[in-house]
Computed example of a mutant assay.
Amino acid sequence: MAIIYREIEERDNKALAALIRTVFEEFKIDKPGTVYTDPTTDHLSEVFKTAQSVYWVAEEDGEIIGGCGIYPTDGLPDGCVELVKLYTSAAARGKGIGKILMQKSIESAQHFGYNEVYLESFPDLTTAISMYKKTGFKNLSAPLGNSGHFACNVWMLLVL
């Protein structure tokens, strides 16, 4: 069956929270100051009702296998949005699903009129960081905005 890409719905919350936390455990980055302990991880459909935000999910055979979105994080410069919560299940990796989710999010950022996309990550997530660099993201020396995810220590910016 084909993979369906669509915007988040309330029914996705539990599966997405479980997927995100599984990825964090897998990469041993399940610690405070990340989305792992962020209470909003359990109700993402509510979070993405915020204006100028969107969260895309990838679904295959009724199962959520990935997600990625953009969010106007507090404290970011005007015209800048954060690329957030890009995760795919272990079985979904290496198939271009994460890249499609990221591209849909970047296209949404352009649609909303943003001219920069910021992200935070971990050095352990080497495949994701490589994908970001190939997309045009550049490393920053310090974080932007107030995500609250103080444990992240890779910061990148894409100028659209």
Rank of each mutant, 00 (worst) to 15 (best):
L19S: 08
A91T: 07
M102D: 08
L157Q: 06
S45G: 09
I64T: 00
E26I: 00
E25W: 03
K95I: 11
G75M: 13
L158N: 01
A90M: 06
Y5E: 07
D78A: 15
G33A: 14
E107V: 07
I29Q: 12
A2E: 11
F122P: 00
H149T: 05
F112M: 04
G96L: 13
D38K: 08
F24A: 11
V154T: 15
C152P: 06
D42W: 08
Y36P: 06
K138S: 08
T88C: 15
N139M: 13
S147R: 06
P143R: 07
E25M: 11
S141E: 14
A90R: 08
K134D: 13
E9A: 05
Y114R: 04
N139Y: 15
T135A: 05
Y132K: 03
A51W: 05
E82Y: 11
V81W: 03
A128H: 00
D74S: 15
H43F: 12
W56S: 05
I8W: 03
D124N: 09
F137P: 00
S89L: 07
T135R: 02
M131C: 13
C80F: 06
L144K: 10
I100V: 15
M156E: 13
L160D: 02
G75Y: 13
S147G: 09
L101Y: 05
C152F: 10
I97Y: 01
T127F: 02
L44Y: 01
G98R: 08
N13V: 03
R11W: 11
F24G: 07
I29V: 14
L86E: 07
Y5S: 06
T40K: 14
M102L: 12
T127W: 04
P72G: 15
N153L: 13
K49P: 04
Y132D: 01
E10S: 13
P77I: 15
G98Y: 09
D78I: 10
G62N: 03
F112I: 01
E59I: 07
